[in-house]
Amino acid sequence: MAWVLEAVLAFLAAVSFSIIFNTPAKTLVSCGIVGMSGWLAHSLYVGLGGDPVQATFFGAFIVAIAAHLLSRVFRMPMIIFSVSGIIMLVPGGRAFNAMLNVVENDYLTAMGYAGEALMISGAIAMGLVFAEVFMQLIFKPKHRKREKGASL
């Protein structure tokens, strides 16, 4: 039941972000699904006792793969689908805690949180990059064949 609730919330959040970023109306549901799958991958990994950095990597990877696939289906730029999914993985809580501890002059604790936030941001970047490479390796031959067509 908790999973269903999380899925619904993540879907709603992703759709809301897509509205804020003004994506085309017909892609809203797809954006929501991308965000939901990314969040569920992240939260499932953490739930199984995984490291949050690795979990974020998997989340970002899933988001980027889903976004790449959808961008092929809709023939639209990939960022349209990935943005709202990626934004949900941003380590807001840790950044907040880092800030809170800096203000309270507890720099040691703050460094810990800030370091974690930094690692998670790096994991998001790595997830995006790995997905990009993965998609290029898989779809390159097909891509070449219809190079003449509009394969922007």
């Binding site: 941003v90 907040f96 998001i124 995006l128």
Partner: peptide, 26 residues
């Protein structure tokens, strides 16, 4: 307090810039 602040701040997070920066660098 922390939950409310983190939740409310999320719409301001520069998600598009983060994604674009990574993709452009790569």
């Amino acid at each position: 307090l922390d939950g409310i602040i983190i939740g409310s701040v999320m719409p301001l997070v520069p998600g598009l810039l983060i994604t674009n920066a990574v993709r452009d660098l790569m």
